[in-house]
Design a binder for these strands. Structure first.
Length: 836
RNA sequence: GCCGGGGUGGCCCAAUUGGCAGAGGCGGCCGACUUAAAAUCGGUGGCAGCUACGGGUUCGACUCCCGUCCCCGGCACCA
């Protein structure tokens, strides 16, 4: 038997770095031929993608988790014969770089690239098998020139347009603020109250695709909660638009349209509400100081509420005119109130307190009439009439119409249909589908982003920059420590341009940049050929690889990034640049890495960084710990996991392998036949079990199966014996562990005498013959309680089982009384139902 | 309020979807080796009443149904 002292210690810090360096240097994991090349090959293709990181510093634990899950998937797929596209890049434009520039005078480009270099070396060190020939950074002109191309495509399709919108504006800093820079309604830098200022902004017309974005969700293999979040965000509803009339002796009458999902309740409309900024109201109220004050208060308040998440009560303003309801032919009071939003529907509503909780609350608050127009029913049975005095909330359940003229007695659903028909035939309105999805505001008054490729000419108006002049480069010498926009104030960027259309000099560049979500809405396409300076992506490659087969990333992007990417793919499809309908077929949201039940953060002092782990135990231990801690979708509480335990297991695998190597060279003792047979069986079982777990991407339980196999090897070799069965077990163990712990498995594979890489091995197949049993153990239950177990021939029928049980003294004692029924599950259990 | 995910040994967590409740790990305790310690190795976990609680369906329920409690995450005046 080998003495422990002769066995080399497991020393990951020595074995890992050279292997990592070799993989990076030799481009071991580059896809060859590249993704842009068609291959005549039977290997199935698989596009695996992780949400690319933002380079705000070195990798954190969250990155390590997402990359580890992703890399285990990728390596497992490769071993199963897939041709895997596995690129990596950086989402490199954005506010943190600009803030570093403003606050510390750093050059955002240097700051960003330095962080990317750091992240890149950590990625290499941790053994993630990305394709280093397919790398992109969204802040490179070679990338953002094509982001600008995308803008032009959307512009030409009529999907990019400009209109006025309210933006956050700090009067003291004289700059526009992003939403996250507004804290409790004040500027985060100077605490001045932030105003909402109208400014002309670029939008992408994502609402054009609302229906398709909604219906196509059904076919995606995404977590239900993400699909639900998108459904809620799109917010489709069916109803009607109905025209009411403002009765205003002072300014004249005017038609005003409302949107409602409950046209059936129109006879209960006892007042009318406009959004405070509704043009029909602001026009009439111009010069009214009281109204101006109301508007101001409401806009400020809504900003605070939006930031703090509180709802508070409703603010209303009684308007000096009435509104006429075409159905009841009556004039009702008109209000402006903050609970009606200008951006949704038509910005005006008919208020039905009896049937709408918000209207009910406002009516109570203002002492307005609550008119009963529905008689509740339950399964068609009439219930008591509603009593507005006694009600504390609106009634939104089923019922029949009352006090509703010709519609009295109709079921609400029927009334709804009838009223929509009548509205249309009388010319008072029409059926209408609405969504709460708004067009995507992409203008950012920031300078570390892709410039919007448009020139504003006094003669020609908005003129897109010709594709031949892309990219519109960000100047190298931006001065960030200024008030307002650095791009706007740059000496030449804005003004040094002639109109691409008329050639006139009376033109300026647009000085806004695009939302960074634009950058990330198409990067998965650029990966197909990031070096190609003749096109954004090769269409044939897009057809070959899209949609992405597995996208892995955090839930924080449940709506925006994932929705924008879907929109871009559909728009590009309609422009003929690809044929896929969707960017990401399957989505995996990994859990968070937390600490003691709370999010990790520097300020809480509970931050663990990957370096602390891999510099102590090595990358394999970090990776193994991550995957073993929980299923990929579940959170990992770092306080509950044990890198030490993982490290001990890997050291055990190390020792067992080297002992076997030593035995083979010294000619050590062989296992007894029965020990060898039972180890071979354990190996076959482990292959079957672990393979299933890997297929299901349950890496935590997959590792548990590999630990079980390790224990079987340990058990078999306890007396120092070895032989082919041990080698077979170890080789199966190492190949299956390879996707999780790529370094130690590679090293041990070589120690076992193999010249090639373990990562190029095929996934092991179990010898099925080893798994068939002649005899199986059957559980014996009496009245559902386990009373014993018996050995029976595999596949034994009920008669054989029963006679075996009756011959077994240990259980037969429980069988006194009449056996009423026998339930037999072959090879599993038998249950005797006894009475008496 | 709405939507989603949970509640199983001291702890993290499994359980082929209705079929032996504990796989794997952490920790603890006991033991072997050692002069001793570390490392390594072995052993060790719920009694008729056990899977948050109360009912139900079933030969059989962690699993399905009804009700209740608690925890986490997201959305939230969208007419």
């Amino acid at each position: 038997m080998s003495q422990p002292s002769e066995i080399e210690r497991y020393d990951p810090l020595t074995i890992e770095p050279p292997i990592a360096a070799r993989w990076a240097q030799e481009r071991t994991y580059s896809l060859r031929p590249g993704p842009h090349e068609a291959v005549d090959d039977e290997a199935p293709t698989f596009y695996a993608l992780t949400m690319f990181p933002y380079p705000s510093g070195d990798l954190h634990m969250g990155h390590a988790e997402i990359f580890t899950i992703h890399d285990a998937l990728v390596r497992h797929l490769r071993m199963n014969g897939h041709r895997v596209l596995n690129p990596i890049g950086w989402d490199a434009f954005g506010l943190p770089a600009e803030n570093a520039a403003r606050n510390r005078g750093a050059d955002p480009r240097q700051w960003t690239y330095a962080n990317i270099d750091e992240q890149r070396s950590t990625i290499v060190r941790l053994g993630y098998s990305f394709d280093w020939d397919l790398v992109l950074r969204t802040c490179d002109p070679e990338y953002y020139g094509w982001t600008q191309w995308l803008f032009l495509e959307l512009f030409e399709a009529g999907l990019a347009y400009r209109r006025e919108a309210l933006v956050n504006f700090c009067p003291s800093c004289s700059t526009v603020l992003a939403n996250e820079q507004v804290v409790d309604g004040a500027c985060e830098r100077c605490s001045t109250a932030v105003g909402r200022e109208p400014r002309t902004q670029w939008f992408f017309r994502i609402t054009e695709y609302a229906d398709e974005l909604l219906t196509d969700l059904d076919a995606l293999d995404w977590p239900e909660r993400v699909k639900n979040a998108q459904r809620a965000w799109i917010g489709r509803s069916e109803g009607a638009e109905i025209t009411f009339t403002i009765r205003d002796p002072a300014h004249g009458d005017e038609d005003v349209v409302v949107y409602t999902t409950r046209p059936d309740t129109i006879f209960g409309a006892t007042y009318f509400v406009f959004a405070p900024e509704h043009p029909a109201v602001t026009r009439r109220m111009a010069g009214d100081d009281e109204y101006a004050a109301f508007l101001d208060e409401v806009s400020r308040r809504s900003e605070i509420e939006r930031q703090s998440g509180t709802t508070g009560g409703k603010r209303g303003f009684r308007l000096p005119f009435t509104v006429h309801n075409p159905f009841t032919n009556e004039d009702v009071p008109a209000y402006a109130a903050d609970y009606v939003l200008m951006e949704y529907g038509t910005g005006a509503i008919m208020a039905v307190p009896i049937g709408d909780e918000r209207d009910f609350e406002f009516a109570r608050q203002e002492g307005l009439e609550i008119r009963v127009i529905i008689r509740p029913t339950d399964d068609g049975e009439l219930l008591d009439e509603l009593d507005p005095e006694a009600m504390t909330t609106a009634y939104t359940g089923p019922g029949v119409m009352v006090n509703s003229g010709e519609y009295d007695g109709l079921d609400v659903d029927e009334a709804k249909r009838r009223i929509i028909d009548d509205v249309a035939s009388k010319g008072w309105g029409r059926a209408k589908v609405n969504t709460r999805l708004r067009d995507w505001l992409i203008s950012r008054q920031r300078s570390w982003g892709a410039p919007i490729p448009v020139v504003h000419c006094t003669m020609c108006g908005e003129v897109p920059v010709p594709r031949s002049q892309l990219p519109v480069r960000l100047p190298d010498d931006l001065e960030f420590q200024v008030q307002g926009s650095p791009l706007e104030q740059h000496p030449t960027f804005k003004g040094d341009v002639t109109c691409p259309s008329c050639g006139g000099a009376d033109a300026v560049r647009d000085t806004d940049t695009m939302d960074t979500f634009v950058d990330s809405s198409w990067y998965f396409l650029r990966f197909l050929a990031p070096w190609d300076d003749t096109r954004a992506w090769p269409a044939d490659a897009a057809d070959r690889w899209l949609p992405v087969d597995q996208y892995t990333g955090g839930v924080e992007h449940a709506v925006l990034h994932l929705l924008y990417s879907r929109f871009v793919v559909k728009a590009m499809r309609d422009r003929g640049h690809l044929t896929a309908d969707e960017p990401f077929q399957a989505l995996l949201n990994q859990g968070q890495v937390i600490m003691d039940g709370a999010a990790m953060s520097k300020s809480k002092g509970n931050l663990v960084v990957p370096g602390q782990v891999y510099e102590t135990f090595g990358a394999d231990t970090l990776r193994g710990t991550m995957l073993f801690a929980s299923a990929p979708e579940d959170d990992i509480d770092w306080a509950d996991v044990s890198p030490t335990g993982m490290n001990k297991w890997l050291a055990r695998v190390w020792r067992l392998t080297l002992e076997q190597v030593a035995r083979e060279s010294d000619g050590g003792p062989l296992l007894a036949d029965d020990a060898a047979a039972s180890l071979r069986r354990a190996t076959a079982e482990a292959i079957v079990d672990a393979s299933a777990e890997f297929e299901a991407r349950k890496y935590n339980t997959a590792i548990a199966k590999l630990m079980t196999l390790t224990n079987a090897v340990l058990d078999a070799t306890r007396q120092g014996a070895g032989g082919p069965a041990v080698r077979e077990a170890l080789e199966a163990l190492l190949t299956m562990l390879a996707p999780v712990c790529p370094f130690v498995t590679e090293e041990l594979w070589h120690r076992l005498g193999h010249g090639g890489s373990v990562h190029e091995e095929a996934w092991p197949r179990a010898d099925e013959d080893l798994l068939v049993d002649d005899e199986v153990e059957l559980v014996v239950q009496v009245n559902g309680k386990v009373r014993g177990r018996v050995m029976v021939p595999a596949g034994a029928d009920e008669a054989v089982v029963e006679s075996t049980v009756r011959a077994d003294e240990s259980v037969v004692g429980h069988l006194d009384g009449d056996v009423v029924k026998v339930v037999h599950v072959p090879d599993r259990l038998v249950n005797f139902v006894v009475r008496g």
